[in-house]
């Protein structure tokens, strides 16, 4: 049963990821991203990281993808005026794809983890553990991340001003 959950969510995620890459329409691609995130959240649940799964859905799927959709709608891009792709570009992308396939294959077939370790205790299941780590060992990164967000806000405001400073 657990295995089936894993398989289902894994394949679901991969198919939606392919959908992002292959979709012509930006909105469709955003929807696929959303579904992808749902799949990954499922995988997180399978890994007993419940808080993280929920956070993923809340922050990523809820806020980030929503922001993406806002912008896609705002910019109203027409997909038609793109110039045809040159042969070189097509060949290069094929080459890149082949490289990636080769990399993955080598990884899965010759990965160093010969004997996968057994699953340890599910420490990620309790909220207390997160809180403890965040507020003792990783306190500095927490503060720094706070600053990053502050600066991001300021940056976004500056960048989107309508006068000469923004554009």
């Amino acid at each position: 049963m657990a295995n089936f959950v894993f398989l289902f969510f894994a394949s679901f995620t991969v198919i939606c990821a392919a959908g992002i890459v292959l979709n012509r329409n930006a909105v469709n691609a955003a929807m696929c991203l959303l579904l992808c995130l749902v799949g990954v959240a499922g995988l997180f649940v399978r890994l007993d990281a419940f808080l993280l799964a929920f956070l993923l859905l809340l922050v990523y799927a809820g806020a980030v993808v929503a922001l993406f959709l806002f912008i896609v709608m705002l910019l109203d891009t027409k997909g038609g005026t793109t110039p045809a792709r040159s042969a070189v570009a097509k060949a290069a992308s094929l080459g890149a794809g082949a490289l990636l396939v080769a990399g993955l294959a080598s990884f899965t077939l010759k990965g160093r983890l010969a004997a996968p370790p057994p699953a340890g205790p599910a420490v990620g299941a309790s909220l207390k553990a997160y809180a403890y780590e965040l507020f003792t060992l990783y306190l500095l990164p927490v503060e720094v991340v706070g600053f990053i967000l502050l600066i991001t806000m300021i940056g976004v405001i500056v960048l989107s001003r309508k006068e000469a400073g923004g554009a």
Binding site: P116, P117, V123, A129, E133, V145
Partner: peptide
């Protein structure tokens, strides 16, 4: 999950 530590999980926050 497989190492039984919290570091990876917490890093996801960041």
């Amino acid at each position: 999950r497989f190492n039984g530590t919290m570091d990876g999980n917490v890093f996801v926050f960041f």
